[in-house]
Amino acid sequence: MMEEFMVRGLLAGVGIALAAGPLGVFVVWRRMAYFGDALSHAALLGVALGLVTGWSMQLAIAGICLVVALFVTWMQAHSDMTTDAALGIFSQGALALGLIVVSLGEGVRVDLMGYLFGDVLATGWSDLGWIWSGVVVVGWVVRRYWNDWVNMTVHEGLAALDRVPVVRMRIVFMLLTALVTAAAIKVVGALLITALLVIPPTAARPFATTPEGMVAGSVGIGVVSAPLGLLASYHWDLPSGPAIVLMACLFFMVSLVVRQRR
């Protein structure tokens, strides 16, 4: 008989993999890995705020991530700065601010490790509620705007002429990624969120001949990596986030070999 915390952990890991899979392919296609990094650093600022003020941690993280996502979109449209420079500034700026906030919060002696590297086995039912509502929202939005998103990934100008509201779609995508980041922090931790977005799609690429196939592969690899990583974490007492990410890396290695063979 499986213990309840284990069931919750599994549900959380699988949920995050389901939500990160389809978003991750766009992160890879649109070369936005940097955006994931910026969000994870911003998430740490959210953690710091949550710890110091006592607000709901998820709300603080999601709020900060949303603000950063909107800022980055705005910068893209209204400045000559390259996107990766803008993202670098935001991610480092948010991280610095987060560290300062933590240092100011006297008496706050919470172990940051759990937020940095994930503590999926401590997932509560409320966390699960967050994660699975994220899954539902991501699934619905991705399904609904799938063709538009693929279209604008190929060429934003061509998509705009096909009447795709490019700027609005870009914002929706960033907001969703921000929400998933906030939800994923409990599972893999702030430092490793980008891995969850980038590794499964990249590992799935050699097996895919269509965009949809790549999403399916990406979700599949994520959904298998999460429970395997969790089991490893449980049996050998490893931190859960790194265990899940390493599992995904293993799949990536396999796909690398497959790619070489072809």
């Binding site: 296609w29 190929v154 060429h155």
Partner: peptide, 27 residues
Amino acid sequence: LGYVPQRLRIDSVLPMTVARFIALSAP
């Protein structure tokens, strides 16, 4: 309007056939 931009580069990381690419515009 039909538009042919000067340059379009599709990265090999995006698996897409020509038929699918054309269908994106008129699903």
